[in-house]
Design a protein around this nucleic acid. Sequence first.
DNA 1: GTCAATCTGTTAGGTGTCTATCGGTTTCGG
DNA 2: CCGAAACCGATAGACACCTAACAGATTGAC
Lengths: 143, 143
Amino acid sequence: MPKPDRQPLGVDLARTAKAATRAFDDALAAAGGSRPVWLILISLKTRAMANQRELAEAVGIQGATLTHHLNAMESAGLITRRRDPANRRVHLVELTAAGDTTFHALRTAAVEHDRRLRDGLSDADQAELARLLARLRENVAPA
Amino acid sequence: MPKPDRQPLGVDLARTAKAATRAFDDALAAAGGSRPVWLILISLKTRAMANQRELAEAVGIQGATLTHHLNAMESAGLITRRRDPANRRVHLVELTAAGDTTFHALRTAAVEHDRRLRDGLSDADQAELARLLARLRENVAPA
DNA sequence: GTCAATCTGTTAGGTGTCTATCGGTTTCGG
DNA sequence: CCGAAACCGATAGACACCTAACAGATTGAC
């Protein structure tokens, strides 16, 4: 029998990521936040970042995009930015009390989303999926 | 030993899709096109679409977004739009000769990209990946 | 037969991302 | 020490995507 002529792998991957991202966006919006804000908050919370460049890399976006979000978050009172006295090129980004409150609200939504996403997948399934995704990333990594 | 506290599944998925999409974008750009244009062309080529709504669904975008791309593609001379005489609400979208030429150029790039993406994955790996991705889509599907 | 509901596609406005470029700051070679 | 290079973050402009609201065309209930 001829092979079933599947969907190109990239299309399948993109559709899945789009659906999952959309569901996550909705969950975070219902909790009063957004995906980029959540990623920034959790990065700031889990370990201190030396500078914005490092923070951008942790979040997986470009520095210019991060600036955009930090501006909005600063206006919303979630973070503060101040010059590092030791190196005046660097901006130190710090969570405010409001930022901390938002972090906890979004964490609840994020944990619930991850639980939903993993539903019905054994530990072995999850490990296998992580392995396959890692391989895909290697395959498309720039030479 | 404690479990290694992996990356949330959604983050892993999003990062992989972003990297793969980016690589695909670059490949298509080098061939003189773009990802949305490619998806529209292949949808039009593989089977006739009854209307734009169906086309948008095949591509995986909203109708309004499709309109945007069709406007650009019409300006670029890749497609033509005309009213269906049988139902004047419907726009019939058709490829021009230039659209067909672009389609073939992009197909070469797309096939090469898919080959690169699958590199090192056995048929069993690919089937397993497709199964796992399908499960994730089910998990996040709206109730 | 007429008018409201529905269907199709467009327009308007907003978000998130990118690249390219710039201004301010530090470092370091000569 | 001083000026070029490197570094950090911000700004400008662009693109793809979304939702909401709209206009033209058709259908169908009365």
